[in-house]
């Protein structure tokens, strides 16, 4: 049971980090990126092929993160351009439709060219005892990396001028402009960052389970639900919601089986949204 809960927490933190990218993009500019999962998959494939080509795991992972960031930048420079010209709900809708179109292209291409291809980074060595529970080395490394990434993210927002500038745009875009912050550049920065994070989670995820070419939409949908439950625009909310849903997921899977656990997870999410539309840590408007 404890082993399962630990697994759930690890999965939850990873979900949280995926959701963090989505939630930041939404909070900054009312843009929903439905190609988030595809960025993760592209990066995973880059890593798989780089390692096939003989690149050691570490530089290959670096390459995967770089590619993740570049895809984010690409979205900002191309299909999101017309989105930025709109306001309000029209903006969210168009962003959702255009990124969905992009996601189709990526999914279709990868499944056509590399059907069934998957990335798994198995970390060797025996299990290590944590609280009397044997944990696989891969899981431990994955959760360590994810936690460090979260800590780095939080310090960035708390202690750096640029991080504060990002928060200021989320809180009041016009106020941010008045102190000299260009919201468009902040948005670009965060799209790159969210691409890197998506790639990072794909890499760490592949240390626990394999990440295949079809994983994209599943990732996006889970991240979207975590984002909404945590509160749009709130990174700490994403982490909290990720962990809660991660635990709910493993416990429910244990008790009633995989498909039904998904139902429980979804209902938990729906109930949270209905009780608190702003999300767990979101701000009521």
């Amino acid at each position: 049971m404890i082993a399962n809960i630990l697994d759930g927490i690890i999965f939850g933190i990873q979900l949280g980090l995926w959701a963090a990218g989505l939630t930041l993009i939404y909070g900054l500019g009312g843009v929903l990126n439905l190609a988030h999962g595809q960025i993760a998959v592209i990066s995973a494939m880059v890593l798989a092929f780089a390692m096939d080509a003989g690149l050691p795991a570490l530089p290959a992972s670096g390459l995967a993160l770089l590619v993740g960031g570049l895809v984010g930048l690409f979205l900002d420079l191309t299909i999101l351009r017309p989105v930025y010209r709109l306001q309000g709900e029209a903006r969210v809708l168009l962003s959702l439709l255009l990124t969905l179109g992009f996601a189709f292209i990526v999914d279709g291409f990868l499944n056509w060219r590399y059907p069934g291809r998957a990335l798994s980074l198995f970390i060797g060595g025996g299990a290590i005892d944590i609280l009397g529970v044997p944990m696989r080395r891969g899981s431990l490394l994955a959760s360590a990396i994810t936690l460090v990434a979260f800590a780095a993210l939080f310090s960035f927002f708390r202690f750096t001028t640029l991080g504060r500038a990002v928060r200021s745009v989320i809180e009041d875009e016009e106020g941010a402009r008045l102190v000299g912050i260009d919201p468009a550049r902040i948005m670009r920065l965060i799209l790159v960052l969210s691409g890197v994070l998506a790639a990072l989670v794909a890499v760490t995820r592949s240390m626990v389970v394999s990440v295949d070419v079809q994983a994209g939409f599943g990732i996006t949908v889970l991240a979207l639900i975590v984002t909404v439950v945590g509160g749009l625009g709130s990174v700490s909310g994403a982490l909290l919601a990720g962990i809660i849903l991660g635990i709910v997921n493993v416990i429910a899977a244990d008790v009633i089986g995989t498909f039904m656990s998904l139902v429980v997870l979804l209902l938990a999410a729906a109930v949270t949204i209905l009780i608190r539309p702003a999300g767990l840590l979101g701000v009521e408007e």
Partner: peptide, 20 residues
């Protein structure tokens, strides 16, 4: 006023000097 309501007074002031 367009302040940043969830940031502290000091953070608001510091952002006034952005990007420095």
């Amino acid at each position: 006023r367009r302040l940043f309501p969830r940031m502290t007074v000091r953070e608001n002031l510091a952002l006034g000097a952005y990007p420095g």
